[in-house]
Nucleic acid binder design. Sequence first.
DNA 1: ACGGAATTCGAATGCCGTTCGAAACCGGAA
DNA 2: TTCCGGTTTCGAACGGCATTCGAATTCCGT
Lengths: 213, 213
Amino acid sequence: MHGRANLTAMRLMDACEHLLCEAEALEDLTARRIAIEANATPSAIAYHFGSQEELVAAVAERVYRRLNAERLRLLQKAVDRRAPHPPNLEEVIAALVGPSIRWSLDPTSSYPVLSHFTSMAKTHREQAPHYRRIIDNVEHHRAFIPHLKRIAPWLDEVDIGWRLNCALGIRSQVTRSRSRTEVLTNYRMNLDDPEIVITRMVEVIAPMFRRIA
Amino acid sequence: MHGRANLTAMRLMDACEHLLCEAEALEDLTARRIAIEANATPSAIAYHFGSQEELVAAVAERVYRRLNAERLRLLQKAVDRRAPHPPNLEEVIAALVGPSIRWSLDPTSSYPVLSHFTSMAKTHREQAPHYRRIIDNVEHHRAFIPHLKRIAPWLDEVDIGWRLNCALGIRSQVTRSRSRTEVLTNYRMNLDDPEIVITRMVEVIAPMFRRIA
DNA sequence: ACGGAATTCGAATGCCGTTCGAAACCGGAA
DNA sequence: TTCCGGTTTCGAACGGCATTCGAATTCCGT
């Protein structure tokens, strides 16, 4: 059947997700280890997913869907709270970057899957196009554009998208280059409390969308 | 001697740098290929550098040094132009992000070495601390802090460092997630002209350092 | 020209992802 | 119950990888 609804296929995905979360380095993730954790053999990976890389892609897509659902839920909440007026800028930004920040600081979350996955796209040539399709799936990001446009109507859509992209870059820097962030802020910012970090990020991102003086 | 001044050691570094620039994926970089390109054998890598990973680290450090020299040169130029007054904010930001942008768009530059190197830190467990020391070497970034503090004296050093870190995140997003940037801006921004991109980045980063209205 | 250190080499080792044919399993038809 | 086709699992390969190590070679001061 080569399907993914199979029981062992599910166990392989769970094992892969778990190992990706525990692993401090990508070299700790091997087909044999995944198979052992799932009570299966390496061949099962090839049978059900085609290759180890495709298994990882399937797992990453699953985690991405959870994160995006959370993001869009918060966006909707921000919109509903002020409807029919434009939503609050700070709340929209918090909806954009908040889930990533909270997940990255929650040791029980599957956020490591995503950060490992993006660096995997640079490692494997064959699956790179497929990987990039998942990483660059910005449909859920584009959902923010119309609402930001209502907040900052003096910016055109390109400007909005560009600022959105910059906000995502800041998000990545904070979630993925923690040690660099620590050093630059002289270890004097509390980077363990997600709400503090989100507030600090909003403080920096919001001015991008304000009318210039 | 196990030194790095050796001729073959130099040839190995050059070959490694060249392959890292050409390679579209990290799996294209193998010890055997490096050795062949340098007219040597894989064992030579172990002899001169200890391992392939350490060779890559040495190469990355060399490229980093070039980039940082360029950055600090531009910073100094910005400072000198306005001395004894504080330098121009836009010019300082351009000195910070400009070299990365120009290199990343210049096909003859060694910028791919750096982007590959950072994703390598996530792949290898053993060398991760050593890799991170190179990546997190922010001494050259800290050189920007006192000048930014003169420009925005109402921000304390933590605020400055935090905004510097955010600016670097935007830089990484633009240089390393080009396709995402393209999609979010509807392919309507010219991302091939470094000067246009730098102007757009300054436009977004500068407000972070302006006094809130 | 010699001798010891520095360097290069090539074979061997163990791990990796993947392939493939054979075995096992399963559910419906006889 | 017996049989049978398709589905799934398994284990033994295969080639490629980085690395190790002892032997061979080169280099250089004496």
